[in-house]
Design a protein around this nucleic acid. Structure first.
Lengths: 396, 396
DNA sequence: CACCCTTTGTCCTGCGAGTGGAAAAAGTAG
DNA sequence: CTACTTTTTCCACTCGCAGGACAAAGGGTG
């Protein structure tokens, strides 16, 4: 099928497209209530959007006491691709124009294999989703990578955990291969956009989204917009010093947060504890699997293992101390905790909360919710779809 | 004289007013080069501004090879008042519409005397400036106070060092007394706006402005706009933990940055060192003055006193460590150091730079200037004028 | 089923913003 | 004085858009 290449011609049309994306099908009258345009103007713009086939008529809505309205909705054939490349696995999902997930695949993968190998796999996953009948093609794709990105060009810059990706033209290459517009961003920013669109952060303008996975990063949203910093490395909190003269970190410093708590650090600590026979539970798991991961720690903690709980609490304390500083500095309206280690659940959350509420002033914490992300592994891919739809639904 | 009460009628006029404010007198042709409007439209808007008397004709400019242009400038009778209330002194200045300082008074004063006493003094200072012929009245005033402010209402909220100010309707009260529009903000934000308008930050969109005075605060500028946080306490970095289990702080925690380094902490440390006879220089000064302040430490350091230099270096290191974390998080394009202790000069700056360049990743620090503010005590009052002019030069 | 009210959608007119060309005004250079 | 520049004004024309009038389509009531 022919893909939609049209773009909104002006800010009004862009506004309408986003309203339809976020609010689903709507009548002209309902749209009019939200955009502060005259009925005539609105009708003109809607008609033009109908001509571009970006939106379609969608039958009659229920009556609100008078004439029934004709619903308008985004073209149901539109498809966005959300790709979330993590350090150890890839998520790929297809969404419709309302950013609802129609299909989602997750596969383990090592990002260190380099961009060529990774994208081969991503393209195969996308092809699989297409083959299963969920999409006839893609109208846009949003890609998240686990490292800093020069956003306008869509190119990773100096990514610590992704050797071989530095300067690789992700946006251009994928745009070629997929035959559609592509936007690239840090995976943490994608998670933030996901939670903003469909998760806990729907109503908040300024918030932080801390992702604890293999590494630790933080999405920063200011006035509803992701803030990326001067060189695209904003939110890179994994290498903030959490422990003076602490453990050596891969970055060359000592005591970085990431060296003391992250998926990787947790696995290492758990293995150590198991070897020292501090925990029978962990030792058993190490024996049967050969290695330990954050998932094992989570399971052990769920089973009541004291060592595992201690590890989580200590990590949560470290993380919480850093977040407390960020809360003082940034004064957000919400802090979201997400990423692979959310399986650690409320033990982790409680430790973080304790440190933040203790370490920041009441004015900043007084009305500050600190919550787990509610989208889990789908936050990234929804964020990807959101990223590209924001791009496509803006004036050309 | 009758005050100007007119406001720009639309965004074009507001744009023009700001161009004239920031760029001084300009011809219609020069303005046209900057605003992307047709000559006709521009002429219409300029004529309307002339009618409001916000701008006036200002003679002929030099020829650029053809017909000489008629210059347009902001009304030279416009006067803004910038007020910077510090913990121990007040600065009041009058500026013209181009935000050039025409007169500036500084007086020692203790904010703890409460808003009524302080504003009495501020009004007296303003009256003095007016009486000296610099102004016949004020068209607007921007006030900075050393604590968090609920910005839209212009009311201090829970200010730690200003008991008695909590909830005092600063904006409303001063607006009454001065008979002109008033905006109120945190003093650190004012300093940031000052450096942005006339100082080192003129060309930078995202930067941090760290003010080390009696306390420590940080102005955050995102995309050219001051970011104030959800409750107005963004940038409150004085109570970030800098030293685990460090000194007790007035806020109830331990190890806050402010407890280890600030004007107040430095004075205390210097007094301590003098009492213990660690430094003859400081002991002498203590003897002759009865007390020691940051200024004494600066003088001692300038004279080569090792103890004073050590105190500064250690404080700079603490501060630098905190800033390093903020740089990782925020990835600014510039860091400005200002406030009362800038007298400590390059010793302080060197210590901060060392810590930041060591403690943050190269991607964030690679092209990051860390500099002293260039406006000194005038940054705050210029920022105040800028604040109110931004308000007045926006569509009503 | 007739009647009245409400809501939705379309049509039309008129205003005002804004563009772009042409000409006038006011210089400079030679 | 002439040729060329630059600035400013003037004018005709287009287009976006608001807002009222009107038609269409429904519900509720007697």
């Amino acid at each position: 099928m022919r893909r939609m290449t049209a773009r909104p011609a002006n800010a009004h049309q862009a506004r309408l497209l986003r309203l339809l994306r976020d609010g689903g099908p709507n009548s002209r009258a309902q749209l009019g209530d939200q955009v502060d345009l005259s009925r005539s103007k609105l009708a003109v713009e809607v008609d033009r959007l109908l001509e571009t086939e970006l939106v379609v008529a969608d039958g009659l809505a229920a009556s609100r006491g008078g004439r029934r309205s004709h619903n308008i909705r985004l073209n149901p054939h539109l498809r966005f691709l959300g790709v979330d490349i993590g350090a150890t696995s890839v998520d790929v999902a297809v969404t419709n124009a309302e950013l609802e997930i129609l299909g989602h695949i997750n596969q383990p993968m090592d990002v260190r294999e380099g961009p060529v190998a990774v994208f081969e796999q991503v393209l195969a996953m996308a092809a699989k989703l297409r083959a299963s009948g969920l999409a006839e093609g893609f109208d846009g794709a949003g890609i998240g990578v686990p490292g800093p990105v020069r956003f306008p060009e869509g190119v990773p810059v100096a990514p610590p955990i992704m050797p071989g990706w530095d300067g690789f033209p992700v946006r251009e290459a994928l745009s070629q291969d997929l035959g559609c517009p592509v936007m690239v961003d840090n995976d943490v920013n994608l998670m933030a956009m996901g939670e903003q669109h469909a998760g806990v952060a729907r109503t908040v303008g300024d918030f932080l989204c801390v992702k604890i996975g293999t590494g630790i990063g933080c999405g920063i949203v200011v006035g509803g917009e992701v803030y990326r910093g001067t060189t695209g490395s904003a939110g890179d909190i994994g290498h903030i010093q959490a422990v003076p003269d602490g453990r050596p970190c891969a970055c060359g410093n000592r005591g970085c947060l990431e060296a003391h708590f992250s998926g990787a650090a947790l696995a290492r600590d758990a293995t150590e504890a198991a070897r020292q026979q501090l925990s029978a539970e962990l030792a058993n798991r190490l024996e049967s699997n050969g290695t330990l991961s954050a998932v094992d720690v989570a399971a052990a903690a769920a089973a009541g293992d004291a060592t595992a709980l201690d590890l989580i609490r200590e990590g949560g304390n470290r993380t919480g101390q850093v977040i407390a500083g960020l809360v003082s500095f940034f004064n957000p309206g919400l802090v979201v905790i997400g990423g692979g280690v959310t399986g650690l659940g409320h033990t982790l959350l409680a430790a973080i909360r304790t440190q933040v509420y203790r370490g920041s002033l009441p004015l900043a914490t007084g009305n500050l919710p600190i919550v787990l992300g509610e989208l889990g592994p789908t936050a990234g891919v929804i964020g990807g779809a959101r990223l590209i739809s924001d791009h496509l639904f803006s004036p050309a």
